[in-house]
Design a protein around this nucleic acid. Structure first.
Lengths: 217, 217
DNA sequence: TACCTCAAGAGTGTATACAAAATACATGTA
DNA sequence: TACATGTATTTTGTATACACTCTTGAGGTA
């Protein structure tokens, strides 16, 4: 009933998977590096069984590569990987944009606009980290409001795979202005419930993201 | 070097995951039913460790649901699940259609057309099962030729999730003619390398698939 | 009868032990 | 020195044992 109890009730497997996911995203585990099982189970204080189950989960999610009898490594994305992910993510969010204009309530659309405005105030302050976090949330929430569970799931998965490099990218100066302009366009389309325009804005935003992140790979 | 050796070299985990996947697709394991760990490890002749790792993989793929301390069940798709999957699959294959027209070689396009013609000959004979298999292969191969690995991966995943109900659906009479007409349109667009038209045909084909399969759920 | 309570059994989660494979390294040879 | 070979060490894969949690159902109570 109390959330914290629900969390501690989750299986060790899930907790381990989440912990390792975080280590990958923040770069504690470097892309391409071997995952030292002995070291990590020591750090996390669990035995090999739940740890290895967690690795299988992460492998299915595409964050880790398990090489039979040769250990696991953190997946290192090639530029081609990243491009293909952004291309697909763009297409998924295009659909999300179209659907959200049809399926979301006025209140839900309003909540997205509010989110956008909070982002903009961080932009005005040039406060990158909270902007980065709200940006992720905006895309997640918009996809959620498309009311398509599968779409949400696929979008989350790709976002998770890209999180590390976008996290890196968000720390150094880039063409931030362009991204903000894209978002302004999205909100205009959203207010008009113009699905086609919003979808187009989402897709082209993610294609431009490629230009912004490709140098940090 | 020899493929069969590579296969036997795969970890038990992978073999188990593949076996169970097949059992789910052909319906030996009924959707919604509990997965009897003891029974299955007996049948497959493995111990619990690799079996449970396989379950985690299948869970991440969305074929199985693991309920902590309460055992695993074969995921049973609701009509909403299926609709959302077809909506996303349609959008993914729309992209595949657009890309294949740009990125595939003449030979590759030709191979798709050949595949289509083989399908048609099974259609003429009203031979459902081989038609069904070639149909899956056509969509898989077309997506593969879009030369986007992520797109291929996501398409395969959704296709796997839907495989069981489409397998069921393929066994009973339906509006087969409509599906064939859709495919004829795809091949016309493909021959013209008209990406937009092909993409549109793919997407609308999968939306119509919803109408065809929704009663078998 | 309807509803608790609390064993007993079954099933699930985790740790550990052992087996098999890969890697690292030392030794010998050309 | 460069390379091959065999052995020690480390790491990975799998089986099993034990602990814990759920489910079931018998017995008791209102």
């Amino acid at each position: 009933m109390v959330p914290s109890i629900a969390i501690t009730n989750r299986s060790l497997h899930d907790q381990v998977a989440n912990r390792v996911r975080d280590l990958i995203i923040d770069g504690s585990l470097e892309p391409g590096s071997r995952i030292d099982e002995a070291q990590l189970i020591e750090d996390l204080g669990v035995s090999r069984t739940p740890f290895r189950e967690a690795l299988r989960t992460l492998a299915a999610e595409g964050l880790v590569i398990v090489r039979p009898s040769k250990g696991s490594i953190v997946r290192k994305l090639t530029p081609e990987d990243v491009f293909s992910m952004l291309e697909v993510l763009g297409q998924l969010e295009r659909l999300a944009g179209e659907l959200v204009c049809v399926r979301a309530s006025d209140e839900e659309i309003e909540s997205l606009v509010t989110l956008h405005e909070r982002m903009m105030s961080y932009y005005d302050d040039r406060d990158r980290m909270p902007y980065y976090k709200l940006n992720q949330e905006f895309h997640s929430r918009l996809t959620e409001l498309s009311k398509n569970e599968t779409l949400k799931e696929m979008q989350s998965n790709i976002q998770a795979r890209l999180k590390h490099i976008r996290y890196i990218g968000s720390q150094k100066p880039g063409s931030w202005d362009g991204a903000v302009a894209d978002h302004e366009e999205m909100v205009l389309a959203l207010n008009d419930r113009d699905g086609e325009r919003l979808g187009e804005a989402m897709a082209s935003h993610l294609l431009k993201t490629w230009v912004r992140v490709k140098d940090s790979i």
